[in-house]
Amino acid sequence: MGNSLRHIYAIATNTFTEAIRQRVLYVLVVFCLVMLGGSSFCTQFDFRGDDFKFMKDLAYAGISVIGLLVALLGAALLIPAELERRTIYMVLCKPVRRFEFIAGKYFGLVALLTLFVVLMAGIFFLALWGHESALTGDILAASKGRPTELQAQMIAEYRAAAYDPALVQALVLLWAKLCLVTVISVFLSTLASSTVFIVCCTLLVYLIGHLQSVAREFWLEGTVAAAWYTRAFLAALALTAPDFQTFNLIDEIIAGNAVLWSNTLPVLGYAVGYAVVALALAALVFEEREL
């Protein structure tokens, strides 16, 4: 057990180091800086009342896009490469269990994802703080420090929208969603050995995952008459794909609705459960794989 954890840790840190030392990553970092810089420019699209919705949407979409890139490409690039270059022999000829290799790869990628999300979120919160203090600063300057009732109301609204603690919840949810995409990509990497194939399949599961709830309700309710093969197809979708709509709480948080940790935690639990099962599946498939 202790050995297993040590092995997983060693492989995870190695995976993380490998990813960090790739040049592609710096391109992503630059891209993310440019995008967030762009988002503060885009605040020109001042949605009048300005609950910073546009900024938040853009930032979360940006983190989603970059996170998805990392999640989609991470496993799909690293695991087949390890097989193709046969560096995996060097690992698996040692007293290392195959599931340790899989888990190590996964947690290394999760570490990478975490770094990215934290980095981008940090920049986003800075930008949000800048925008908010500029807006309230303008109001305070115009009222010479003695805001009227309406101005005080506006300042209060700006501050509530900018420093909404639920934004952290949204971030954690987004991170969990990306970790789920990663685990699917890791699982598919144990089945296939072509990067393009793995990326495409993961993307497909990602998209299907957003329709899973529709398929599920359609199948379970069974109110609409459908041919048996349609129903079987829907059942297969519902049974295997994760329900990515679960993470739509992120939208609600950005829209400023009250989302409590008691709403968020079950979703996180679901993501953890799915990840554990997917890792187990990956380990089972990989156990039999000929190298």
């Binding site: 049974l239 329900d243 989302v259 979703v267 679901y270």
Partner: peptide, 22 residues
């Protein structure tokens, strides 16, 4: 996978219901 799938369905429905409240 199938066993997990069958197990997760009620879980997903409950999460969906909770989300509906939000």
């Amino acid at each position: 996978l199938v066993a997990w799938g069958a197990g997760k369905l009620p879980w997903e429905r409950r999460l969906a219901a909770e989300r509906q409240v939000v």
